[in-house]
Simulated assay, not measured.
Amino acid sequence: MPRAFEDFHVGDVFELGSQKITHEEIVRFAQAYDPQPRHLDHEDLIASGWHVTATFMRLYTEGVLLHAEAEVSPGVDELRWLRPVRPGDVLTGRVTVVGLAASLSRPDCGILQQRGEFLDDRERPVMRIMIYGLMRRRQAANP
């Protein structure tokens, strides 16, 4: 049964797993979405921050959203790229629930606030983001 809003608590931590970033993925993403020279063909190649964020979103979706009564996201805050990501880096994601609030526009939902972070293989943060998610309440999901 998917998690409803009531099943989340401040302090809950969700480990999202890891993803290795390859040279080919960095270049392919850059060619399609962020064709800056540092992301395409540079001796000190680094991943686009948008590539890093998209990779995080994939792990977050698979680790949390697909197992929850998730609706849409009203937004994100404080997206920060803290250090460069290079080919071969293995990034590990996690999110921590930091806030819960009633939705003012959707009484059948609550708003889940989570702090997401990606760590490199030396456990240094490479990205941080504050995510807001609209989650259906149990009563609305199972009347």
Rank of each mutant, 00 (worst) to 15 (best):
H42T: 08
V76I: 09
K20F: 04
H42I: 03
V97F: 09
D77R: 14
R28K: 15
V10G: 07
E62V: 10
R94S: 13
T92W: 02
R28F: 00
I46R: 10
H51N: 05
P35N: 10
I46Q: 12
P84N: 00
L91A: 05
Y60A: 02
R86E: 00
S48N: 07
A47T: 05
E25T: 03
G93A: 08
S48V: 03
T53L: 12
P35K: 01
T92I: 05
S48I: 06
A54V: 04
D44I: 09
L45C: 00
T92K: 08
L66C: 13
Q31E: 15
F56N: 04
M57T: 13
T92P: 10
L45V: 04
V52N: 02
Q19S: 10
V13P: 03
D89F: 03
E43H: 11
L59D: 03
E78R: 15
V52K: 05
E6R: 01
V85K: 00
I26D: 02
Y60T: 03
A68S: 15
V97S: 06
E71G: 15
I26V: 14
F8M: 01
A32T: 13
L59H: 07
G17R: 06
V13E: 01
E25H: 06
P74I: 04
L59Q: 04
M57G: 07
P74V: 05
G49D: 05
Q31A: 11
